[in-house]
Design a protein around this nucleic acid. Sequence first.
DNA 1: GTCTATACGAAGATAGAC
DNA 2: GTCTATCTTCGTATAGAC
Lengths: 198, 198
Amino acid sequence: MARDTRERLMEAGLVLFSRKGLAGTTVSDIEARAGLRAGSGSFYRHFASKDALFEVVVRRELDRYRATIRDAEPDSPREPREPGVADAKVALALEFHQTLTTLDQLGRLETIISRDARAMGTLFDEVESLYNAALDASTHRLDQLMKAGQIPRRDPQALAEMIRSTLIGYHLNTQSFRRSPRRVSPADLIATLIDLIS
Amino acid sequence: MARDTRERLMEAGLVLFSRKGLAGTTVSDIEARAGLRAGSGSFYRHFASKDALFEVVVRRELDRYRATIRDAEPDSPREPREPGVADAKVALALEFHQTLTTLDQLGRLETIISRDARAMGTLFDEVESLYNAALDASTHRLDQLMKAGQIPRRDPQALAEMIRSTLIGYHLNTQSFRRSPRRVSPADLIATLIDLIS
DNA sequence: GTCTATACGAAGATAGAC
DNA sequence: GTCTATCTTCGTATAGAC
């Protein structure tokens, strides 16, 4: 038992909520997974209720999400000076790849959201605004690339939405249907996307 | 009470399973929504158990899905003779629009799948193969368009996967975050997609 | 075919020993 | 801080009256 019990309970909750949903997860399940005796009320020495744990877990994942985004996006909007078209492609590829990685890391939160959005209460609004912020940032970046003549001019908002839809759709698909030999790799998808945009 | 009770129970189950999941839905909920007294066991005069209803409901939606696909895709792979590039664009737009409509109609099954895939047992495999069949059909169509010189040549499989990801991602996004004035309409999305492909 | 009433078990939650 | 034991609530499911 390396980490303390409260920590293990949160980790267990995260996994189980994403797998079986809030209603489908019992406190006994959580105790068992955290190394406690299932059915003993030991859980309640650490959290007031199952719902309380749920909120704590979701909030923490949300904070992690924010941190990941902050890290991925340094405060200064790096504008490469005199960038070539190739640079733009590389930058876009990196950005798309980063988004997929983030989605992977945050997969559990993603799953919890799609499953128990209604149980999340106000936290749901935070997720939504975070999502919209990311979309706005993407729109802005695409707009700049267009103005710089690095990619053809189109409706930047529609394009941003399309790209985000693609990445999220791909992510969710590979989550639901985990085809063993994935027919189209993330690299292939991104390459196609870049090819189309530029 | 226009339709008979069994029918109303199935309808109620469909709605509630997609909203709150299998575990989150109680038989009493279902009874109430079907116009029966909640808590009376009247449900059990029509179905052996909650799980039994779940299977029946999912199977019926699956059959509807198949029927929708069959209707949307006439048996003869209509190959327009001497088609212009404009024709190809129109055909693609119609196809994408059709896909979004289907996803909308089948939204509840979609939600149930993403929520309770594990509870679906062998039905899940049927959904997956259906999904893959649709993807293969799309790949084939794109390949033909490329060979006919109507759209630029690319990896048809990657392109098909990308398009499908986009449509599903868009659909799920607008489901989860129902922004009232949708920032990018389905038409905008499709237009962007077509613009990029051709 | 729906109701009231109820048996039964599963799950949430608490008390108190160690 | 975890355990055993227990209480309570709720949900599944059945029995039998109407």
